[in-house]
Amino acid sequence: MSDTPVNPVNDLLRLERMPHIWCGGCGIGTSVNCFARAVAKAEIDHEHLHVVSGIGCTGRVAGYVNVDSFHTTHGRAIPFATGLSLSRPDSKVVVYSGDGDLTAIGGNHLIHAARRNIDMTVICVNNFTYGMTGGQVTPTTPYSAKASTTPYGNYEHTFNLPNLADACGAQFVARWTVYHVRQLTRSMTKALKTKGFSFIEVIAPCPTLYQRRNKLGDGVMALQYYKDQSTIQNGADTADVGLSFQSDIVVGEFVERDNLTFMEGYEKRMKEILGDGFVPYKGAK
């Protein structure tokens, strides 16, 4: 064994696929650093970790992590992960995708997986835009921000993602920016250990499209903004954490619950009604 030190993130990466496709100054890779450390801290063995992504820049995470991983269709990572999670109760299933993928085309699946309390962790990298397709408006693009399909500035109302996840019953809800690498790592660790549906919004820069089009500078300037204008408010009412263009950002761990998961609810009900006639679903075990 060589004593040459190894980057701790490498343990989770498919190194033969590096360098990745993300632009310089993109925040997705930073979130992956935190994720790799969280997986180690949560002591999840890699054979029992499955990462599912949808489509888009963040959707490529599944292809870079060296675990059984699935790069599915646009918006549909969560329902795929639902089938996988229910059928591998001994594994941890993580959905890693972007704001457009998870909250626009996949919004219906997000709210229902949270409502059902399916055992999975959803990591939503929110860069306020569709990066892969060239910087179009998403449900999280702030009012007045420019996108390629809102050249005169966005005029729609936006989603407050922690509030959405909270309202739908998520068991753990947190928001951090990629400036908050230590806190993000801790929250990811917590999410991975949460029984049921956990949701983390990770605010991250897209320097190539969102930053540039809105004259916000490069990735470093984005992280500087996150540093200067974020306030940590653990336990904040998620109704109060909405974002607007270059506004203050409330970050922290907002919600912790301990409700029955989908599977627990199913088994409880069936045992009550069917008694010994009930044969629990063991998935592929």
């Binding site: 269709t73 969560i78 329902p79 089938g83 059928s87 219906n108 699946h109 199913y266 009930f278």
Partner: peptide, 30 residues
């Protein structure tokens, strides 16, 4: 029938979800 034989039926939020949810179960080994 499924609760009596160890199967799992899930009524999804729509057909799009249904048509990929079961593929997750297939990759799990079902």
């Amino acid at each position: 029938r499924f609760p009596k034989i160890g199967g799992m039926f899930i009524q999804m939020e729509d057909e799009i979800a249904s048509s990929i949810c079961f593929q997750g179960a297939v990759w799990a080994g079902l």
